[in-house]
């Protein structure tokens, strides 16, 4: 008896405290969906409304059974996503390794920095889609080409932020290392990496978004392999507008989760900065 009013009061207290951060995004999203549905129902746009995801039989099935696998390319969204995520994981990991490595080298060495900075600044402006034909020419095969597109799209923020992080190591930390006569190996692990870590993470967080963005471009070049990019491409070829809408929402949701995951990781790994 005693706990009931108590727990209800903690619930209302929680609500009072978090109301400000829950209500506005909820209302905003609902308002947007309502507007979309209305404009679609009133015929203002040819795009199907959000309700069609449920009313359309194909998409309802996809929503209800994400895990089905009828062989070939006829799979649920989960399997498509996993294939895409696998590709992103490879490309992104390569980008992280190369980006952090080159970033540190460039951040530590002024002449290297001067030599390559214009090139980096130039290359990072090239859109993911533009890399597709080049990747195909370079690799001749679909899989490595797709991974290359993800890699080349996501490397720049990692590289540039890491270099900046290394450059921004406060002179005080360097002085501490100098006075203590730290070896370069110890300086690297005890001072350089921890100090540049917030910058590196900022780069990693921006890049995970870009890598995921590049997935469509990468999978367009790979007909016949499962993947969320291919799923949308395929729906487009067949004119299933509801499926495209579903694919887009799915991509957005996964991107959001990836970003939140990186933010959480950053908080865990580099506290106090």
């Amino acid at each position: 008896m005693a706990t009931t009013p108590n727990s209800s009061s903690t619930l209302s207290l929680w609500w009072k405290r978090n109301r400000q951060s829950i209500l506005p995004p909820l209302l905003g999203t609902l308002g947007f969906l309502l507007f979309w549905q209305l404009s679609s129902s009133l015929g203002l746009t040819k795009l199907t409304g959000p309700l069609s995801l449920w009313t359309d039989e194909r998409t309802r099935e996809l929503l209800l059974y994400p895990f089905y696998d009828r062989g070939g390319l006829d799979k649920g969204l989960f399997h498509h996503s996993m294939s895409s995520l696998g590709r992103v994981a490879i490309g992104y990991t390569l980008a992280a390794i190369v980006g952090i490595g080159v970033g540190i080298a460039v951040g530590l060495n002024k002449s290297l920095d001067r030599a390559f900075d214009p090139l980096f600044q130039f290359l990072r402006m090239v859109a993911p889609l533009a890399w597709v034909p080049i990747a195909l020419v370079l690799f001749q095969r679909n899989q490595p080409a797709a991974i290359f597109v993800i890699f080349i799209t996501s490397i720049w923020p990692i590289l540039i932020n890491t270099a900046e992080g290394v450059r921004q190591i406060p002179q005080d930390y360097r002085n501490v290392a100098l006075v203590l006569q730290m070896s370069s190996g110890r300086f690297f692990s005890k001072v350089l990496i921890p100090s540049a870590l917030p910058y590196i993470f900022t780069g990693l967080r921006i890049s995970i978004g870009l890598a995921w963005l590049a997935i469509i471009a990468a999978e367009i070049v790979m007909p016949g392999t499962p993947g969320i990019g291919f799923f949308i491409w395929d729906a487009n070829q067949n004119g299933y507008v509801s499926e495209i809408v579903l694919g887009v929402i799915w991509i957005g949701a996964i991107g959001l989760i990836l970003d939140r995951f990186m933010a959480w990781l950053q908080k865990r790994i580099s506290p106090g900065q």
């Binding site: 005080d172 930390y173 006075v179 580099s270």
Partner: peptide, 20 residues
């Protein structure tokens, strides 16, 4: 000729490593 721990410096802005 070079800095060393026999001549330890206490800096104005403390120079502690913030992650430790």
């Amino acid at each position: 000729k070079r800095p060393g721990p026999d001549k330890m410096v206490v800096f104005q802005n403390y120079s502690l490593l913030p992650w430790l």
